[in-house]
Simulated scan of single mutants.
Amino acid sequence: MHPKFEIGMELGSTQASSLVDLCTRLRQEGFFAQVTVGPGRAPASLVLVETADGKRRFGELRSWHTTRDGRREADVLCRLSDDAPRLARVRVDESRIRLPPGVDYATVPADGARAGGDETGSTG
């Protein structure tokens, strides 16, 4: 049996970002086991999103879109608040998304390809 580590605490956005960096480095060094099934499995295209209110949330990158002025935006599935009853699909500018290294984003649909789901929302 492999040892497990679990912690529950509230972090500020800087602390959360530092923790993501640490976990990314640990994963790259092979310290984490890959979970492929079950509730502990992360979405295939995990991203960190900065919402309109300045909070950072993890979400699943569903598709990329190019605006008329050439900017790239993404549809992301995430919880907009800790007490949100369900996930919401939000459109955010690429500058507000952090793509962790080591995740394969090649399968994310682009411009008009439908990623599925009917969640709605916006981060502004």
Rank of each mutant, 00 (worst) to 15 (best):
Y105N: 00
T66L: 02
V108E: 02
A74T: 02
P109T: 13
S17M: 12
R27C: 04
D53Q: 11
L87I: 02
A16Q: 02
V35K: 11
L80C: 06
T107H: 14
A52T: 06
V37M: 09
T123M: 10
A42K: 09
Y105K: 01
A88F: 03
H65I: 02
L46C: 09
D82M: 06
G102C: 12
D75Q: 13
G38Y: 05
L19K: 07
G70N: 06
A88G: 02
V108R: 01
P100E: 03
M9T: 14
S81C: 05
V35F: 04
L87T: 01
L22M: 08
G117N: 06
D53R: 13
E50C: 06
Q15C: 09
P43R: 08
T24C: 08
C78S: 10
T51C: 13
L77K: 03
V76L: 07
E10F: 11
V76T: 07
L11V: 08
H2A: 13
G121L: 04
T14M: 11
A110M: 10
T123V: 14
M9F: 11
V35E: 12
S95N: 14
V108H: 00
D69Q: 12
V20P: 00
M9Y: 11
S18C: 11
Y105Q: 01
P109S: 12
Y105G: 02
I97E: 00
D104F: 01
R72F: 10
G112K: 03
T120P: 00
R114K: 14
R68A: 07
F32V: 04
V49I: 09
A84C: 08
R89G: 05
T14W: 09
P85D: 13
G124C: 07
G124Q: 09
S63D: 02
P109Y: 14
E10Y: 11
P43M: 11
A110S: 13
A74F: 05
G12A: 12
H2W: 06
L77C: 10
D93I: 04
R98I: 06
A84I: 03
R71A: 13
M1A: 12
I7H: 10
G54L: 08
F58R: 04
G59V: 00
R86M: 11
P85V: 09
P101V: 11
M9V: 11
A113C: 05
S17P: 00
F5S: 10
C23G: 05
G112V: 01
R114T: 09
L77W: 02
L48N: 08
V90F: 04
L48F: 04
E94V: 10
M9C: 15
H2N: 07
R114C: 12
S13D: 13
R71T: 13
L77F: 04
V92F: 02
A84Y: 06
G70W: 00
G38P: 03
C23D: 06
F31K: 10
V103I: 15
R114E: 15
D53F: 03
E60G: 06
S122C: 09
A52L: 08
V35S: 08
M1S: 15
V37N: 12
I97Y: 04
G102S: 10
E50H: 05
T66I: 06
G116T: 05
A74Y: 04
S81V: 03
D82W: 12
S18G: 15
P109E: 11
P39H: 14
E60A: 15
D21V: 07
L61F: 11
E50G: 00
A115D: 01
S63K: 00
R96P: 03
R89V: 02
S95I: 07
K55D: 14
V47C: 12
R96M: 05
L22T: 12
V35P: 00
T24I: 04
G8N: 13
